[in-house]
Amino acid sequence: MRTTVPSARLHQDALQFRLILAATYPFFLAAAALGRVRPVRAAGRPGLPAARRSVFGEARAMAVQAIPFAFMG
């Protein structure tokens, strides 16, 4: 019994991931931009600036966190 996944399957999964990322990235970019315009109150000490990513980096991070749910099941 083989437990390894063929490389063609891995390539197909990677391609699907990139396609879904490209399709959903604009929505996450809009959400990140809205989050900058209307910031959420930070939980923590007031007055201390939180380290922030760029809007584009934040959108990519949100997309990369959400997309794996499409591959579950």
Rank of each mutant, 00 (worst) to 15 (best):
G57E: 08
T24F: 05
G47I: 05
P46N: 03
V55R: 08
V55P: 02
L19M: 10
R2E: 12
M72Q: 15
P39W: 02
G44W: 03
V40I: 10
G57M: 06
T4E: 05
R18A: 08
V5S: 11
A59H: 05
A59F: 03
G35I: 01
E58N: 09
F56M: 10
G44A: 07
F17T: 07
A51K: 10
I67Y: 10
A59L: 04
V37D: 02
G57P: 06
F71M: 11
L48I: 07
L29R: 02
A23D: 14
R52N: 01
L48K: 15
L15T: 08
P26V: 01
P6N: 15
L29Y: 04
M72T: 07
S7A: 14
A8E: 15
V37A: 13
A23S: 14
L48V: 11
F17Q: 04
R18W: 00
L15E: 14
R38I: 11
V55S: 08
G57C: 05
M1N: 10
P46G: 05
A14S: 11
R45Y: 05
T24Y: 06
R18H: 06
P26L: 08
A63K: 01
M1K: 06
F56P: 05
R9M: 12
R53L: 13
R36G: 06
P26M: 09
A33D: 02
G73D: 14
M1R: 08
L29G: 02
L19V: 09
L10D: 13
G44T: 04
A59T: 03
R9S: 14
F69D: 14
Y25C: 06
T4S: 15
A23H: 13
V5R: 15
I20G: 00
A22K: 14
A63R: 00
P46R: 08
A42N: 07
V5N: 11
A61T: 09
I67M: 10
M62G: 01
A22D: 15
A14E: 12
P46F: 04
A33R: 08
G35F: 02
L15W: 02
A30L: 07
V64M: 10
R53K: 12
A8I: 08
R45L: 06
V5Y: 07
L19K: 15
L21H: 07
S54K: 03
L21Y: 08
I20S: 04
V37K: 15
A30N: 12
E58V: 00
T4I: 04
M62K: 01
L48F: 12
T4D: 11
V5P: 08
M72P: 02
Q12N: 09
P39L: 01
T24I: 00
L21A: 09
L21S: 02
V40G: 05
Q16G: 03
P46K: 07
R38S: 12
A63E: 03
L10F: 04
A43D: 10
V55G: 00
R2C: 08
G73L: 11
T3D: 09
L34D: 00
A43V: 02
M72D: 13
A8Y: 12
I67L: 15
A32M: 03
G73H: 14
I67A: 01
